[in-house]
Design a protein around this nucleic acid. Structure first.
Lengths: 228, 228
DNA sequence: TTCGCTCTGTCAGGCAGGCGACAATCTCCA
DNA sequence: TGGAGATTGTCGCCTGCCTGACAGAGCGAA
């Protein structure tokens, strides 16, 4: 992949585009493009740290499977998103499993490359921690909604979050390419319940459902539902 | 409070005791002791950043209230625990409310003092980020258990976590001074359900219930229940 | 085109856990 | 010592969501 294309794609993300330019350069210099075949595992829970990743094309499933085989899908990370930074700080094992979804292209910066870079420029620790603070905020929101909000509101909220790439994509997408089952496991709901709520939203003309995708027709009303 | 007493108390915590000594010194030099009267609010959601805190005596409730008035209690932070670091990194508003529980004594380092300190020693950003990575890991565990584990296991797990101060207190406490209602709202359960599970545990001789406290009799069996 | 797979739509049944209610018990302070 | 407030223990009802099941629809490969 061309260096120009790569940089322009990463510049779409809030985090990367606001980094000091020298750090951007260093990151790109240390990075290697990596491709995943459909369903290929990048890492699993308990694996040792292996560095930082950015999604360039396709998407990556971040989740975990319980002893009973139930799956909790934390999120689907997509184009200008970075992930894998927690282990950079504490050197502890991975908290989640990561799988490529379809063909996807990643940017990878190895743990050692990052640590040498940070050794030379310790001030950059702050920038990388920024990535973690965003994730912590999102996780808090998630956790709170799970216990406090009614399911329909949680679903509405999540649709909006996905549409705007959890704050990374500025003109929010209107069409979300994701099966209802995946949405369900992100919300810790059954597929059936998820379908029921979506059908209801479709009846109100707020979304439109197609095979494997959800189209947001009325983001305004969706936002109203998400607050309740 | 005496400087010696203060340091010895902070040294009980994993995070502080593993910091480089110069950073420990700088933190202490920049810190001021602050006392909260029972129920006094330290900050609320949406407040601007106000620095970093450590609990010296008593405990602090970190939580949030929904529009419907339901309360989600994130955690009760106790003696050698530090909190409030997220806003240090991103300068965004507080994510939660913080209230003193009973009389409590805190150590406070103001945002500006911290930022000047970090400006002089940017390498310390890494140490502070460590605090955040711990919190992120704990929150992930929380989130996952909420959707994947049966309620009894979640309760058992939480009791153990509280007993060992979420990894900060090494010889775990046997007696937890907390009303069942607070435990309930940490678990997103009703008080009644919580009581029912606790009673069941008491029947098995795993815990002993008293007024306003829970005594852990058999941590081993409790740990077994937490895995299921 | 046809087969197989994935995804959607929708039923009925069951139950875990929420909610309201109320009594009993404990603690603390006046 | 007594009374107020907080906490616990335990009902019963009810709802929201899960489970299982199955039909139909869309999609891609042979």
């Amino acid at each position: 992949m061309d260096m120009q294309v790569l940089r322009s794609r990463l510049d779409k993300g809030q985090w990367f585009s606001h980094l000091p330019v020298p750090l951007q350069d260093s990151l790109l210099a240390a990075a290697r493009v990596r491709r995943l075949s459909p369903g290929q595992r990048l890492f699993k829970r308990g694996d040792p740290p292996c560095g930082l990743y950015a999604v360039l094309e396709g998407s990556v499933r971040i989740g975990a499977v319980s002893e009973q085989g139930k799956e909790a899908l934390l999120s689907l990370v997509e184009s200008p998103h970075w992930f894998g930074e927690i282990c950079l700080f504490d050197g502890q094992p991975r908290t989640h499993d990561a799988f490529g979804l379809g063909h996807c292209v990643l940017l990878h910066i190895s743990q050692t490359a990052l640590l040498t870079l940070l050794d030379e420029q310790p001030a950059y620790w702050r920038q990388l921690a920024l990535l973690m603070s965003q994730k912590l905020r999102l996780t808090f929101i998630n956790l709170e909604q799970l216990s406090l909000m009614p399911t329909a509101a949680r679903l509405a909220h999540r649709l909006l979050m996905i549409a705007e790439g959890y704050g990374e994509i500025d003109p929010p997408r209107r069409v979300l390419q994701l099966p209802q089952e995946q949405l369900a496991s992100m919300l810790s709901l059954s597929r059936q319940t998820t379908n029921q709520i979506l059908k209801d939203l479709q009846g109100q003309g707020i979304v439109n459902l197609k095979y494997g995708e959800i189209e947001i027709l009325d983001a305004q009303r969706l936002r109203m539902l998400a607050i309740i």
